[in-house]
Amino acid sequence: MRLIYALLAAAALPAATFVALDMAIPRAAAAETTDAHALYQQHCQSCHGVDRLGGAGPALLPESLGRIKPDEARKVIRDGRPASQMAAYSSLLDAAQIDSLVSYLYRPSAMPPTW
């Protein structure tokens, strides 16, 4: 019975409501990706490469991060890695920015590696 009421209520809403709701999710995800990409370019690319393929630091692609869980990646970004050149970013990035970066790193790259 609740389902019928929900369907009737949804049918009464203008179609534009559903379009607006449908578009909000992809736009939010795109904005998050853009912000994370900008953070990566600002703080990470000088060591890990413009396309995350590595440089002075290792590649940061899902294929190369498979052995590191996202929580460990957050910790490394936040606290750095002792006895390496990986600096701590907790004074530059807040928790939400670090989460955004970690999500970005575990997404496939726009430029797949050619190794």
Rank of each mutant, 00 (worst) to 15 (best):
residue 1 M to H: 09
residue 1 M to T: 12
residue 5 Y to N: 06
residue 5 Y to G: 09
residue 6 A to P: 02
residue 7 L to K: 04
residue 8 L to P: 03
residue 9 A to L: 12
residue 10 A to T: 06
residue 10 A to H: 02
residue 12 A to R: 00
residue 12 A to M: 06
residue 12 A to T: 04
residue 12 A to K: 02
residue 13 L to Y: 01
residue 13 L to N: 04
residue 13 L to R: 02
residue 13 L to I: 01
residue 14 P to Q: 01
residue 15 A to I: 07
residue 16 A to C: 01
residue 16 A to Q: 07
residue 17 T to M: 07
residue 17 T to V: 15
residue 17 T to K: 00
residue 18 F to Y: 15
residue 21 L to H: 06
residue 22 D to Q: 07
residue 23 M to D: 14
residue 24 A to W: 11
residue 27 R to V: 12
residue 28 A to F: 11
residue 28 A to N: 10
residue 29 A to T: 14
residue 30 A to G: 04
residue 31 A to Q: 14
residue 33 T to P: 00
residue 35 D to S: 14
residue 35 D to A: 15
residue 36 A to Y: 01
residue 37 H to G: 12
residue 37 H to Q: 14
residue 38 A to T: 14
residue 40 Y to W: 14
residue 42 Q to C: 08
residue 43 H to F: 15
residue 45 Q to S: 15
residue 45 Q to A: 15
residue 46 S to C: 00
residue 48 H to L: 07
residue 49 G to Q: 06
residue 49 G to C: 11
residue 52 R to Y: 06
residue 55 G to I: 04
residue 55 G to A: 10
residue 57 G to R: 01
residue 58 P to F: 09
residue 58 P to D: 09
residue 59 A to R: 01
residue 59 A to N: 00
residue 60 L to W: 01
residue 61 L to Y: 05
residue 61 L to E: 09
residue 63 E to S: 15
residue 64 S to V: 06
residue 65 L to D: 05
residue 66 G to R: 05
residue 66 G to F: 01
residue 68 I to Y: 11
residue 69 K to Y: 10
residue 70 P to D: 04
residue 70 P to S: 03
residue 71 D to P: 00
residue 72 E to W: 13
residue 73 A to E: 08
residue 74 R to Q: 10
residue 74 R to C: 06
residue 76 V to M: 09
residue 76 V to P: 00
residue 80 G to W: 02
residue 80 G to F: 04
residue 83 A to R: 13
residue 86 M to S: 08
residue 86 M to P: 03
residue 90 S to P: 02
residue 90 S to R: 13
residue 91 S to R: 14
residue 92 L to N: 11
residue 92 L to S: 14
residue 92 L to I: 10
residue 92 L to F: 14
residue 93 L to A: 07
residue 95 A to P: 04
residue 96 A to M: 09
residue 99 D to W: 04
residue 99 D to G: 07
residue 100 S to D: 12
residue 101 L to C: 12
residue 102 V to H: 03
residue 103 S to A: 15
residue 104 Y to W: 09
residue 105 L to R: 02
residue 107 R to K: 12
residue 107 R to T: 12
residue 108 P to V: 05
residue 108 P to H: 07
residue 110 A to M: 00
residue 110 A to I: 05
residue 112 P to E: 02
residue 112 P to T: 01
residue 112 P to V: 00
residue 113 P to K: 05
residue 114 T to R: 08
residue 114 T to S: 12
residue 114 T to M: 11
residue 114 T to C: 00
residue 115 W to F: 12
residue 115 W to E: 09
residue 115 W to K: 08
